[in-house]
Design a protein around this nucleic acid. Structure first.
Length: 569
RNA sequence: GCGCCAGUAGCUCAGUUGGAUAGAGCAUCGCCCUUCUAAGGCGAGGGUCAGGGGUUCGAAUCCCUUCUGGCGUACCA
């Protein structure tokens, strides 16, 4: 429910010294419960009315207090330091909110705003020649969360893992394999062997530029359909794809399409032709470019001087393909912020080509991870690998459960759920633009503001509901004695859930939701400590309703932010 | 050089788009399990909101400027 508009509706029906309609935007939700629910700073009116702010607030407050009707949602108004603070009737508000949650259940936080529309999300999109490391985490998790949020809002979603199975890196892989690799080893050790070759190549190329030349040559062969080149790269690709898919599945990221860059090998010429026809393509230093300097976007390279294609060329081909296939209404690309210019460039090119989708492309950029030792670089070896993080999380969780003498029957499954939660939280906990230094111990810290803390809170709710032996049904008398002092703030947080989902979508900022869930968990734990729900076998139904509502909201929220809901841990 | 982003407690971060005494977690030091899960709760200490100007009744938030860091700036993705 919209607390502000409910209060405003009542105020509009009153005769007040000012016209509420004219100042609607200045009414805001109070930050602090002791200042009521909705407040109105009177300072800006002082000049206009030639009355001191606090006098205005006092006039308004007394006027409101005189006109409060019997079943009003407004309890009272107060004037404090130039602010008009309006207090809602706690029991009424709390009841309305809890009732809504309990009635809607999993539909609480669902909308049909974008029903009938399709969104294509391009995320994860890792380079198959490398291990998935911490640098691939945000794209995978943020992408997944945005997908979930879009579904909450009614979208049909198409998630695409646009894997890097093409380009110069695969030329490098072939060179490395031919120079230092052998078939048995690669077949036996799989991705490990591939990764070793990748590292070896980059180390050698540091002092031998001819290797890079050779790699570009091999890439050209791939692009031109050379049999040996194609066979080798396809062989390596299939080895690696399985591993990436396995890891994504472990993290809960499933994709509708794994169509990678390689698919567009023969679909780039039409793009180049179209650019040429529209007069956008220019020759420059032997290469083909689109000059975007007049838009402050520099030049976008479309074809290298050796005739091979580039990232932008493939993205242009891919977006057209996706539009043809899915007729999407919007498309999201989730990558790190370093690619900002790249996306701005080819989005602009779509616009210049008058593509119908040109205005519906969004680059969701996030900050980069680094390590305490410096930059993450696959060429330096196996650093901060996601599979290691997952494994360490599982081990730690299992150890804690053993230490606590867990009664959980499937401790192994729970350990994994805790690890996945911790990893999701790692990717979502801060504002996405923030650069982050990755610290394994920190991301697997299970105390305080962490994913296990939230999961633990949820498990507490489940445990209470189970012990109570009854569902929290709805009767009107349940809320009469609701603990207004502690339960009220908690219930108001639950009320923020639907709007926060909308905010996440509008701002493309998943941390807003995970932070709300954290606040709810934290507020619930206070509520839990200070209020018995089951006391000497007697169930307090009023409090039980609150527990049930918290459980529902946490469960709905966890689903979106990819934190597994665990009923026992 | 130019462009984009960031700078808040010892550390890691919030701060509802300009409002009330700037808040959490971690770390440190205390306290609380004979009653619903202690992966919990309560308390204490800790601040020149990077610096300097400006706009405003009011600024961590908006504008200007300096500093620091990250990223980008045509043949990588």
């Amino acid at each position: 429910m919209d607390i502000k508009s409910e209060v405003l509706t009542e105020l509009k029906n009153m005769k007040l010294p000012i016209s509420v309609s004219n100042y609607e935007k200045m009414f805001v939700l109070s930050v602090d419960g002791k200042n009521g629910d909705v407040c109105f700073p009177c300072f800006p009116l002082a000049k206009e009315l030639k009355i001191a702010p606090n006098k205005i607030a006092e006039n308004l407050a007394s006027s409101i207090n005189e006109q409060i009707k019997k079943n009003s949602i407004i309890e009272k108004a107060e004037a404090v330091n130039g602010y008009l603070n309006i207090f809602a009737v706690k029991q009424v508000l709390a009841q309305k909110i809890v009732e809504e949650v309990l009635n809607k259940k999993e539909a609480f936080g669902k909308f049909d705003t974008y029903k009938g529309k399709t969104v294509v999300l391009d995320y994860s999109s890792v380079n198959l020649a490398k291990y998935m490391h911490i640098g691939h985490l945000k794209t995978t998790i943020i992408g997944l969360v945005m997908k979930n949020v879009c579904e909450q809002l009614g979208y049909k979603t198409v998630s695409i893992n646009y894997v890097g199975d093409y380009g110069t890196p695969f030329g490098k892989m072939i060179v490395a394999y031919k120079k230092w690799g052998n078939k048995e080893d690669v077949e036996k050790r799989g991705v490990d062997a591939v990764q070793d070759l990748y590292v070896k190549f980059n180390q050698e190329a540091e002092h031998d530029e001819s290797l890079n030349e050779e790699a570009r040559l091999w890439f050209k062969k791939i692009e031109n359909g050379d049999k040996e080149a194609r066979e080798l790269s396809n062989w390596i690709i299939e080895l690696c794809r399985g591993e990436v898919e396995r890891l994504c599945n472990e993290l809960g990221a499933k994709f509708d399409s794994w169509r990678g860059e390689g698919y567009y090998t023969d679909k780039m010429q039409p793009v180049i032709d179209e650019l040429n026809e529209k007069g956008l393509l220019k020759d420059s230093e032997g290469a083909k470019i689109v000059d975007l300097t007049e838009y402050g976007l520099g030049v976008c390279l479309i074809q290298k001087s050796d005739g091979t294609s580039l990232y932008a060329t493939r993205d242009l081909a891919a977006v057209q393909d996706r539009y043809n296939n899915y007729k999407f209404d919007v498309a999201f690309y989730i990558t790190d912020v370093a690619q900002k210019l790249h996306f701005a460039q080819w989005f602009k090119i779509c616009e210049l080509l008058n593509k119908p989708y040109a205005k519906n492309l969004y680059h969701i950029a996030y900050g980069r991870y680094s390590l305490p030792t410096g930059k993450i670089s696959s060429r330096l070896g196996k650093q901060a690998l996601l599979k290691d993080l997952l494994e360490a999380g599982i081990n730690k969780s299992r150890a804690i459960m053993q230490e606590r003498g867990t009664k959980v029957t499937d401790a192994e499954a729970v350990s994994k759920q805790v690890a996945v939660g911790a990893i999701s939280y790692e990717a979502l906990k801060y504002e996405k633009v923030k650069d982050t230094v990755f610290d394994m111990d920190e991301s697997l810290n299970f105390d305080g503001e962490t994913a296990p803390y939230m999961q633990y809170t949820y498990a507490r709710c489940c445990s209470i509901l189970e012990k109570s032996g009854e569902q929290a049904g709805l009767t009107n008398d349940m809320f009469e004695n609701i603990n207004a002092e502690q339960g009220y703030e908690l219930i108001k947080l639950l009320n923020k859930f639907p709007q926060t989902i909308v905010d996440v979508y509008d701002k493309k900022e998943p941390c807003l939701l995970i932070r709300l869930l954290m606040d709810i968990a934290s507020e619930f734990n206070k509520f839990y400590t200070n209020n018995r729900i089951i006391d000497n076998g007697v169930v307090n139904k009023q409090n039980l309703c609150v527990v049930n509502a918290v459980k529902i909201v946490l469960e709905n929220g966890f689903k979106i932010v990819n934190i597994p809901a665990i009923s026992k841990m």
